[in-house]
Design a protein around this nucleic acid. Structure first.
Lengths: 125, 125
DNA sequence: CACGTATATGCCACTTGCGGTATATAAAAG
DNA sequence: CTTTTATATACCGCAAGTGGCATATACGTG
Protein backbone atom coordinates (compact mmCIF):
# COMPACT_ATOMS: atom_id res chain seq x y z
CA UNK A 1 0.00 0.00 0.00
CA UNK A 2 2.83 2.30 -0.67
CA UNK A 3 1.68 4.35 -3.64
CA UNK A 4 -1.21 6.73 -4.07
CA UNK A 5 -2.34 4.65 -7.03
CA UNK A 6 -2.86 1.58 -4.91
CA UNK A 7 -4.87 3.63 -2.45
CA UNK A 8 -7.41 4.78 -5.00
CA UNK A 9 -7.57 1.37 -6.62
CA UNK A 10 -10.14 0.37 -4.01
CA UNK A 11 -13.72 1.29 -5.04
CA UNK A 12 -14.97 1.94 -1.51
CA UNK A 13 -12.12 4.31 -0.86
CA UNK A 14 -12.89 6.20 -4.03
CA UNK A 15 -16.51 6.40 -2.90
CA UNK A 16 -15.43 7.83 0.43
CA UNK A 17 -13.23 10.41 -1.24
CA UNK A 18 -16.06 11.45 -3.54
CA UNK A 19 -18.39 11.71 -0.61
CA UNK A 20 -15.97 13.96 1.20
CA UNK A 21 -16.01 16.44 -1.65
CA UNK A 22 -19.45 17.47 -0.41
CA UNK A 23 -18.32 18.27 3.11
CA UNK A 24 -16.54 16.74 6.04
CA UNK A 25 -18.29 13.68 7.44
CA UNK A 26 -18.21 11.52 10.52
CA UNK A 27 -17.62 7.79 10.30
CA UNK A 28 -21.26 7.12 11.02
CA UNK A 29 -22.42 9.43 8.30
CA UNK A 30 -20.18 7.74 5.79
CA UNK A 31 -21.34 4.37 7.02
CA UNK A 32 -24.96 5.28 6.42
CA UNK A 33 -24.56 7.07 3.12
CA UNK A 34 -22.42 4.40 1.54
CA UNK A 35 -24.19 1.55 3.29
CA UNK A 36 -21.04 -0.23 4.29
CA UNK A 37 -20.22 -1.86 7.62
CA UNK A 38 -18.63 0.45 10.14
CA UNK A 39 -15.39 -1.51 10.62
CA UNK A 40 -14.91 -1.39 6.90
CA UNK A 41 -15.35 2.37 6.86
CA UNK A 42 -12.90 2.80 9.70
CA UNK A 43 -10.32 0.61 8.03
CA UNK A 44 -10.53 2.40 4.73
CA UNK A 45 -10.37 5.74 6.47
CA UNK A 46 -7.26 4.59 8.23
CA UNK A 47 -5.61 3.77 4.94
CA UNK A 48 -6.70 7.10 3.48
CA UNK A 49 -5.49 8.99 6.52
CA UNK A 50 -2.08 7.33 6.60
CA UNK A 51 -1.66 8.04 2.92
CA UNK A 52 -2.59 11.66 3.46
CA UNK A 53 -5.83 11.67 1.49
CA UNK A 54 -7.87 12.75 4.48
CA UNK A 55 -7.39 14.58 7.76
CA UNK A 56 -9.43 13.98 10.86
CA UNK A 57 -10.45 15.99 13.86
CA UNK A 58 -12.04 14.82 17.06
CA UNK A 59 -15.55 15.92 17.97
CA UNK A 60 -16.42 14.23 21.25
CA UNK A 61 -16.87 10.56 20.39
CA UNK A 62 -16.93 11.30 16.72
CA UNK A 63 -14.15 11.69 14.25
CA UNK A 64 -14.73 14.14 11.46
CA UNK A 65 -12.93 13.39 8.25
CA UNK A 66 -12.22 15.81 5.48
CA UNK A 67 -10.43 15.70 2.19
CA UNK A 68 -6.77 16.51 1.76
CA UNK A 69 -6.05 17.11 -1.92
CA UNK A 70 -2.28 16.65 -1.87
CA UNK A 71 -2.05 12.99 -2.90
CA UNK A 72 -4.68 13.49 -5.54
CA UNK A 73 -2.58 16.24 -7.05
CA UNK A 74 0.21 13.72 -7.28
CA UNK A 75 -1.96 11.56 -9.49
CA UNK A 76 -2.90 14.56 -11.54
CA UNK A 77 0.77 15.31 -12.02
CA UNK A 78 1.44 11.80 -13.24
CA UNK A 79 -1.43 12.08 -15.68
CA UNK A 80 0.05 15.25 -17.13
CA UNK A 81 2.48 13.35 -19.31
CA UNK A 82 -0.44 11.79 -21.18
CA UNK A 83 -2.53 14.89 -21.73
CA UNK A 84 -1.01 15.66 -25.07
CA UNK A 85 -2.43 12.37 -26.30
CA UNK A 86 -6.01 13.27 -25.79
CA UNK A 87 -5.51 16.88 -26.74
CA UNK A 88 -4.64 15.42 -30.13
CA UNK A 89 -8.27 14.94 -30.92
CA UNK A 90 -9.13 18.44 -29.78
CA UNK A 91 -6.34 19.86 -31.91
CA UNK A 92 -7.66 18.10 -34.95
CA UNK A 93 -11.08 19.54 -34.25
CA UNK A 94 -9.55 22.99 -33.76
CA UNK A 95 -7.83 22.85 -37.13
CA UNK A 96 -11.04 21.72 -38.74
CA UNK A 97 -13.07 24.53 -37.24
CA UNK A 98 -10.36 26.98 -38.15
CA UNK A 99 -10.63 25.98 -41.78
CA UNK A 100 -14.39 26.44 -41.57
CA UNK A 101 -14.10 29.93 -40.15
CA UNK A 102 -11.41 31.11 -42.55
CA UNK A 103 -12.16 29.47 -45.90
CA UNK A 104 -8.71 29.42 -47.59
CA UNK A 105 -7.64 33.11 -47.26
CA UNK A 106 -5.21 33.06 -50.23
CA UNK A 107 -1.90 31.71 -48.80
CA UNK A 108 -1.79 32.14 -45.01
CA UNK A 109 1.61 31.37 -43.55
CA UNK A 110 1.61 28.15 -41.55
CA UNK A 111 1.66 29.04 -37.86
CA UNK A 112 4.69 27.43 -36.15
CA UNK A 113 3.53 24.86 -33.61
CA UNK A 114 3.38 26.42 -30.19
CA UNK A 115 1.97 23.31 -28.55
CA UNK A 116 3.83 20.18 -27.42
CA UNK A 117 4.49 17.54 -30.11
CA UNK A 118 1.53 15.42 -30.98
CA UNK A 119 1.54 11.63 -31.33
CA UNK A 120 1.46 10.31 -34.85
CA UNK A 121 -1.80 9.10 -36.28
CA UNK A 122 -2.08 5.38 -35.87
CA UNK A 123 -3.38 2.62 -38.04
CA UNK A 124 -6.14 0.79 -36.25
CA UNK A 125 -5.28 -2.43 -34.40
CA UNK B 1 -8.81 -6.21 -12.55
CA UNK B 2 -11.99 -4.57 -13.61
CA UNK B 3 -11.33 -0.89 -13.14
CA UNK B 4 -8.83 1.42 -14.76
CA UNK B 5 -7.61 2.34 -11.31
CA UNK B 6 -6.52 -1.18 -10.56
CA UNK B 7 -4.68 -1.32 -13.85
CA UNK B 8 -2.51 1.67 -13.10
CA UNK B 9 -1.95 0.61 -9.53
CA UNK B 10 0.88 -1.60 -10.74
CA UNK B 11 4.24 0.24 -10.94
CA UNK B 12 5.57 -1.73 -13.90
CA UNK B 13 2.47 -1.01 -15.89
CA UNK B 14 2.79 2.69 -15.16
CA UNK B 15 6.39 2.48 -16.30
CA UNK B 16 5.31 0.86 -19.55
CA UNK B 17 2.69 3.52 -20.15
CA UNK B 18 5.21 6.28 -19.52
CA UNK B 19 7.65 4.63 -21.88
CA UNK B 20 5.04 4.49 -24.58
CA UNK B 21 4.57 8.25 -24.45
CA UNK B 22 7.91 8.49 -26.25
CA UNK B 23 6.87 6.32 -29.16
CA UNK B 24 5.49 2.91 -29.94
CA UNK B 25 7.72 0.07 -28.78
CA UNK B 26 8.10 -3.63 -29.31
CA UNK B 27 8.01 -6.05 -26.40
CA UNK B 28 11.76 -6.56 -26.63
CA UNK B 29 12.43 -2.84 -26.52
CA UNK B 30 10.30 -2.45 -23.44
CA UNK B 31 12.00 -5.45 -21.91
CA UNK B 32 15.43 -3.91 -22.38
CA UNK B 33 14.60 -0.35 -21.42
CA UNK B 34 12.76 -1.28 -18.26
CA UNK B 35 15.02 -4.23 -17.49
CA UNK B 36 12.19 -6.58 -16.67
CA UNK B 37 11.79 -10.21 -17.69
CA UNK B 38 10.05 -10.76 -21.01
CA UNK B 39 7.12 -12.83 -19.67
CA UNK B 40 6.45 -10.10 -17.19
CA UNK B 41 6.34 -7.50 -19.94
CA UNK B 42 4.01 -9.63 -22.03
CA UNK B 43 1.70 -10.22 -19.11
CA UNK B 44 1.46 -6.57 -18.22
CA UNK B 45 0.93 -5.65 -21.84
CA UNK B 46 -1.88 -8.12 -22.00
CA UNK B 47 -3.58 -6.50 -19.06
CA UNK B 48 -3.06 -3.05 -20.53
CA UNK B 49 -4.35 -4.16 -23.92
CA UNK B 50 -7.46 -5.80 -22.55
CA UNK B 51 -8.19 -2.69 -20.52
CA UNK B 52 -7.73 -0.53 -23.60
CA UNK B 53 -4.64 1.36 -22.45
CA UNK B 54 -2.62 0.18 -25.43
CA UNK B 55 -3.15 -1.03 -28.96
CA UNK B 56 -0.88 -3.42 -30.79
CA UNK B 57 0.02 -4.12 -34.36
CA UNK B 58 1.94 -7.02 -35.80
CA UNK B 59 5.30 -6.46 -37.45
CA UNK B 60 6.60 -9.89 -38.50
CA UNK B 61 7.50 -11.68 -35.27
CA UNK B 62 7.21 -8.48 -33.32
CA UNK B 63 4.26 -6.80 -31.75
CA UNK B 64 4.34 -3.05 -31.65
CA UNK B 65 2.50 -1.45 -28.79
CA UNK B 66 1.31 2.10 -28.62
CA UNK B 67 -0.62 4.18 -26.18
CA UNK B 68 -4.37 4.55 -26.25
CA UNK B 69 -5.38 7.52 -24.11
CA UNK B 70 -9.03 6.67 -23.58
CA UNK B 71 -8.83 4.91 -20.19
CA UNK B 72 -6.44 7.55 -18.92
CA UNK B 73 -8.98 10.19 -19.76
CA UNK B 74 -11.40 8.29 -17.62
CA UNK B 75 -9.09 8.72 -14.66
CA UNK B 76 -8.69 12.36 -15.48
CA UNK B 77 -12.45 12.73 -15.47
CA UNK B 78 -12.70 11.14 -12.06
CA UNK B 79 -10.05 13.50 -10.77
CA UNK B 80 -12.02 16.48 -11.99
CA UNK B 81 -14.33 16.47 -8.98
CA UNK B 82 -11.33 17.18 -6.73
CA UNK B 83 -9.71 19.95 -8.72
CA UNK B 84 -11.51 22.72 -6.85
CA UNK B 85 -9.74 21.53 -3.72
CA UNK B 86 -6.29 22.22 -4.89
CA UNK B 87 -7.25 25.39 -6.64
CA UNK B 88 -8.08 26.55 -3.14
CA UNK B 89 -4.41 27.09 -2.41
CA UNK B 90 -3.96 29.03 -5.60
CA UNK B 91 -6.92 31.18 -4.67
CA UNK B 92 -5.38 31.94 -1.32
CA UNK B 93 -2.17 32.94 -3.06
CA UNK B 94 -4.14 35.06 -5.48
CA UNK B 95 -5.81 36.93 -2.67
CA UNK B 96 -2.49 37.45 -0.98
CA UNK B 97 -0.86 38.84 -4.10
CA UNK B 98 -3.88 40.99 -4.70
CA UNK B 99 -3.46 42.55 -1.30
CA UNK B 100 0.20 43.18 -2.05
CA UNK B 101 -0.59 44.95 -5.28
CA UNK B 102 -3.41 47.05 -3.88
CA UNK B 103 -2.36 47.95 -0.30
CA UNK B 104 -5.73 48.41 1.49
CA UNK B 105 -7.57 50.82 -0.88
CA UNK B 106 -9.89 52.20 1.81
CA UNK B 107 -12.86 49.78 1.96
CA UNK B 108 -13.02 47.72 -1.25
CA UNK B 109 -16.30 45.89 -1.61
CA UNK B 110 -15.89 42.15 -1.31
CA UNK B 111 -15.99 40.74 -4.85
CA UNK B 112 -18.75 38.11 -5.14
CA UNK B 113 -17.20 34.69 -5.76
CA UNK B 114 -17.22 33.84 -9.45
CA UNK B 115 -15.42 30.56 -8.91
CA UNK B 116 -16.88 27.26 -7.68
CA UNK B 117 -17.36 27.01 -3.90
CA UNK B 118 -14.18 26.49 -1.99
CA UNK B 119 -13.73 24.00 0.87
CA UNK B 120 -13.72 25.58 4.27
CA UNK B 121 -10.42 26.29 5.99
CA UNK B 122 -9.58 23.43 8.30
CA UNK B 123 -8.05 23.22 11.71
CA UNK B 124 -5.02 21.01 11.53
CA UNK B 125 -5.35 17.36 12.53
C1' DC C 1 -20.98 3.80 38.14
C1' DA C 2 -23.63 1.53 34.50
C1' DC C 3 -25.14 2.05 29.95
C1' DG C 4 -25.47 3.56 25.21
C1' DT C 5 -23.13 5.52 21.33
C1' DA C 6 -19.19 6.21 18.17
C1' DT C 7 -15.12 4.50 16.43
C1' DA C 8 -10.98 1.60 16.19
C1' DT C 9 -8.67 -2.73 16.17
C1' DG C 10 -7.64 -7.73 16.17
C1' DC C 11 -8.31 -12.09 14.12
C1' DC C 12 -9.36 -15.21 10.41
C1' DA C 13 -10.46 -17.02 5.89
C1' DC C 14 -10.46 -16.17 1.31
C1' DT C 15 -9.24 -14.28 -2.94
C1' DT C 16 -6.30 -12.33 -6.24
C1' DG C 17 -2.40 -10.47 -8.31
C1' DC C 18 2.50 -10.91 -9.05
C1' DG C 19 7.05 -12.91 -9.93
C1' DG C 20 9.57 -16.80 -11.67
C1' DT C 21 10.36 -20.63 -14.59
C1' DA C 22 9.42 -23.54 -18.25
C1' DT C 23 7.27 -24.15 -22.44
C1' DA C 24 4.34 -23.24 -26.58
C1' DT C 25 3.67 -20.68 -30.86
C1' DA C 26 5.07 -18.25 -34.85
C1' DA C 27 7.85 -16.05 -38.03
C1' DA C 28 12.45 -15.32 -40.15
C1' DA C 29 17.01 -17.00 -41.36
C1' DG C 30 20.23 -20.35 -42.86
C1' DC D 1 13.88 -28.53 -42.44
C1' DT D 2 16.44 -26.92 -38.48
C1' DT D 3 17.63 -23.14 -35.85
C1' DT D 4 17.13 -18.68 -34.01
C1' DT D 5 14.47 -14.78 -32.67
C1' DA D 6 10.26 -12.68 -30.70
C1' DT D 7 6.36 -13.11 -28.03
C1' DA D 8 2.68 -15.44 -25.49
C1' DT D 9 0.97 -18.63 -22.15
C1' DA D 10 0.61 -22.14 -18.43
C1' DC D 11 1.72 -23.45 -13.92
C1' DC D 12 3.12 -22.66 -9.25
C1' DG D 13 3.96 -20.52 -4.86
C1' DC D 14 3.71 -16.59 -2.20
C1' DA D 15 2.33 -12.26 -0.23
C1' DA D 16 -0.94 -8.84 0.60
C1' DG D 17 -5.40 -6.73 0.68
C1' DT D 18 -10.27 -7.23 1.92
C1' DG D 19 -14.55 -8.51 4.16
C1' DG D 20 -16.83 -10.28 8.22
C1' DC D 21 -17.22 -10.74 12.92
C1' DA D 22 -16.10 -10.00 17.60
C1' DT D 23 -14.20 -7.01 20.78
C1' DA D 24 -11.67 -3.09 22.72
C1' DT D 25 -11.52 1.85 23.64
C1' DA D 26 -13.34 6.30 24.53
C1' DC D 27 -16.69 9.62 25.41
C1' DG D 28 -21.31 11.23 26.92
C1' DT D 29 -25.49 10.61 29.68
C1' DG D 30 -28.41 9.46 33.44
Amino acid sequence: MESVFEIIAEPNRRAILSLLTISEQSVGEIERQLRMPQPSVSKHLRVLREAGFVDSTVDAQRRLYRLNPKPLQEIDTWLAQFRRFWSAHVDALERYLDRMEHPQPAQSKKKPGTKPPRPKPRKTT
